[in-house]
């Protein structure tokens, strides 16, 4: 049965208040190692660069992020081969990204953003100029983080969920099968 479908994070209920705690948590855990971000806001010296994006509709809001597509348009369109699938996660190597924005055009969900790169708490400049280097940013499911994606564990209203469709599908099929046995038509 195992088809190796990638997991992904989605908003799964309508309780999102738009507090942006998910974005701040996402930024925090991605910058603890390379950018000296510690426990408090005062340790941050660089712009907030999240990998999921609070999106507002007329009457509601919810964060939007990468679906880790199986035939990922961003990966396929990348002109610098900066995007690869690593352990089921579509991953951007920011050292290779040239900021061509093909991935932004290709992504049907708006899950890619082009944002400044920083190292050791400082903006990284381009080789030939003082302009700041940018890279594509997208959800990487917080690869290697104990406890799983930070946005999921941070959300105060349990809006976000790490979905594994194969397991979800199994559960749904079992429920459907149980329901069928109750109809007496078998």
């Amino acid at each position: 049965m195992n088809n190796n479908l990638s997991s992904f994070v989605v908003a799964c209920n309508d309780q999102c208040t738009g507090c942006r705690a998910c974005e701040v948590a996402c930024f925090t855990v991605h910058n603890q190692k390379d950018n000296k971000v510690a426990h408090t806001v005062g340790t941050v010296e660089i712009p907030v660069t999240p990998r999921l994006y609070l999106t507002r509709l007329d009457e509601s809001c919810l964060p939007v992020q990468c679906k880790q597509c199986e035939d990922a348009p961003c990966l396929n369109s990348c002109s610098a081969k900066a995007i690869a699938r690593v352990d089921g996660v579509v991953y951007v190597n920011e050292d290779l990204c040239i900021g061509c924005k093909n991935c932004m055009m290709a992504c049907p969900f708006g899950a890619m953003e082009m944002l400044p790169i920083a190292k050791k708490g400082q903006a990284v400049k381009q080789i030939g100029s003082d302009e700041i280097r940018k890279s594509a940013y997208k959800c990487d499911l917080c690869i290697g983080l104990e406890g799983g994606p930070a946005c999921v564990s941070t959300c105060p209203h349990d809006v976000l969920k790490l979905v594994n469709l194969e397991e979800d599908g199994k559960e749904k099929k079992i429920k459907a099968a149980v329901a069928l046995t109750l109809t007496g038509n078998l």
């Binding site: 705690a21 701040v24 948590a25 925090t28 971000v37 426990h39 408090t40 806001v41 005062g42 941050v44 930070a150 564990s153 941070t154 105060p156």
Partner: peptide
């Protein structure tokens, strides 16, 4: 006081 980035660390802090 210094403001926490993660509310999940509030009790520990």
């Amino acid at each position: 006081q210094p403001k926490l980035l993660l509310d999940s660390e509030r009790d520990a802090a």
